[in-house]
Write a protein that binds this DNA or RNA. Sequence first.
DNA 1: CGGAGCGGGATTTTT
DNA 2: TCCCGCTCCG
Length: 796
Amino acid sequence: MADPFSFDDADEPDFSRAPTPRAGGIAARAQAAVQAAMGVPRYVEALNPEQRAAVEAMDGPVLVLAGAGTGKTRVLTTRIAHIIATGRARAHEILAVTFTNKAAREMKERVAALAGPVAEGMPWLGTFHAIGTKILRRHAELVGLKSGFTILDTDDQVRLLRQVIQSENIDDKRWTPRALAIQIDNWKNRGLGPAQVPAGEAEAFANGKGRHLYQLYQERLKILNAADFGDLLLEGLRLLRENADVLADYQRRFRYILVDEYQDTNTVQYLWLRLLAQGTPDRPRNICCVGDDDQSIYGWRGADVDNILRFEKDFPGATVIRLERNYRSTAHILAAAAHLIAHNEGRLGKTLFTDGEDGEKPTVAGVWDSEEEARTIGEDIEQLQRQGQSLDEVAILVRASFQMREFEERFITLGLPYKVIGGPRFYERAEIRDALAYLRCVAQPADDLAFERIFNVPKRGLGDATLQVLHDHGRRQKIPLMQAARELIETEELKPKPRQTIRALMDDFTRWSSLIDSKPHNELAEQILEESGYTDMWQKDRSADAAGRLENLKELVRSMEEFPDLGGFLEHISLVMDAENNDTGERVSIMTLHAAKGLEFETVYLPGWEEGLFPHQRSLDEQGRAGLEEERRLAYVGITRARLRAKIYFATNRRIRGLWQSTIPSRFLDELPAAHVDVVDGGQTSYGGYAASRFNAVETFGSSYNTPGWQRAQKSGGFGERGKSNWNASSKRGPQTIEGELVAKSSASSSYAKGARVFHQKFGSGTVSAVDGNKLTVDFDKAGRKMVLEGFVQAA
DNA sequence: CGGAGCGGGATTTTT
DNA sequence: TCCCGCTCCG
């Protein structure tokens, strides 16, 4: 990345500056020829047959269904390397998109490691948003922006919307800016501009003002020369749709398109990709999407699983390759995960397998309450640690972040080092946002939102009244706030005190701006924070986190060194903004299940498997069965993070919103196969008998479907066995019904026919004797007749 | 303008 | 229960 943040108009990489891609291309081609003579390139040789097929399927659309731990990133990076090495395209002719900066960074590194300097740069490898921005900046004027537009984050967006709502004399208590921000974001995710919003939805906000407010907001953005995150994609889409020449240019440019985590794409991203991948008869659509429908866990944020489920329809003639050989987890862990996820209907169907060890069975333990849960897990970790388990290889994955506190408290008392992953992001912290606002004011004097933010931070006695005066003047004269301020201090409109204060502030900004070209930008930043009194403000602050905030500010200044100038830094920060935590020492990781996607650990603790928490009640209430399936995928993601040990817990009592509530074990526990799970007694104080009855229930469900419990369940849609213990003692919600429906329903047609030979992890080989939806009756050679879920066998 | 005191809401989260 | 944001008052 010579200069990743300059969005100049160089259409092709500047060969005089970039490390000679053309020469590299020739070298690569020569190398490829040598390899061809010798057979297969080494990097391809190292792959398994399916991975290799995914890398070598070069023409036309390709969908790679990559299960957890099957080498997805390896396939993507090798494919890129292969495209370059075989001379099919040069690095700048490949578009490779990811969702997170982390994924983009990782891919960049791995491609460079494989393909060497030929891949240098990969100018079009990045997140959807980064690439969207890059394209948008080149053609900004075509969508009513200027190339240097500012990218607003959620906070700015909300403040702007508040102004818009107020300007329409709408009660912003009843119709909150935040709600509108969410709504607009939602529309943008779905690819809808103000004109395309369905009438019904547009009417729903503020008695029919929804569309109008959206429209006004977009106009305000253009006046401010700003774009929100949604715009980076939606305006990017509009740009391509409305400018055939621009579209054609990019279609020609991107000879190969690769998409990571395709199951997470939302509608705009899908439409954008489809447009770019649109082929002509003489030019096949070389788009390769990699994803796992079973790991789609971002539906609530606009991701549409249907995109991946529909791939073959969208791209006729697509090659579909399944990666099912898992290199991460032991057989028992995979079996547990596979059995669980087989309960989902909306999936393409994959079953992970491994040649590796059976390993330890995942465990399920019941504990009395969340306090005991934390204590038990803490002690278990200490035990493992004594056996040589590295704490870096231990993670606690929770459904909701409030669960984390209990663990933190316990670990502090135990002296067990831990780190919380996720949490409030670096850039979201108030001190960072304040500091950035100062820098934005210096670099972009028209950035009203930034100015508003720091107008009275640190407190300098300026309030709403004064701000209102500036706003009025600014609006009248059609000038930015800072300029309005400069003009007003020359008049009598302001009271003497604020006038004096503003004058001093504007003098500060004048001085800082004058230094912008002469002083290194990180030193300038330090000076600004010092002279504005901002660091002082935190130094005087007595609260516990003040020291940490000052530390963050230092980190921010330090991180600026890596950038060529202030503008480059701000561009980076608006898109990337993650702080690398440079901590030392082994630590247990605590994070949400969502944050854990893509990671792996030797030992994974999965606490809180209780109805209402996991699956989360709200997900069920709001999304119904789709919500349940997404929760189940989350459970699947959780289990498949484990290499060696997965330890599941449920508490009988949990404090939710202050009050203690008794809970029912999660239905997902019932969906684990008894043959591959050990039910253990949890902590010392857990009440007797629970584990035993629990075990029975699992046994009933998992190992044989011919028991009375199972048959009753099929008839009634519930599990009679459970009623005996306090499985559902306080349940009025009846999750069993949904579960019964899910399991027993026979709408999905099976890919196995009567007479087919299948293989089952536990029961071995057998012949299918009956098919009922996704349930198979199989006569096993050794184990006899059993009913099993389709997802739990492989064709033999 | 700024602090205290009250009411409402409280999954998951990237860019 | 706890936290945030808003309102009201000094």
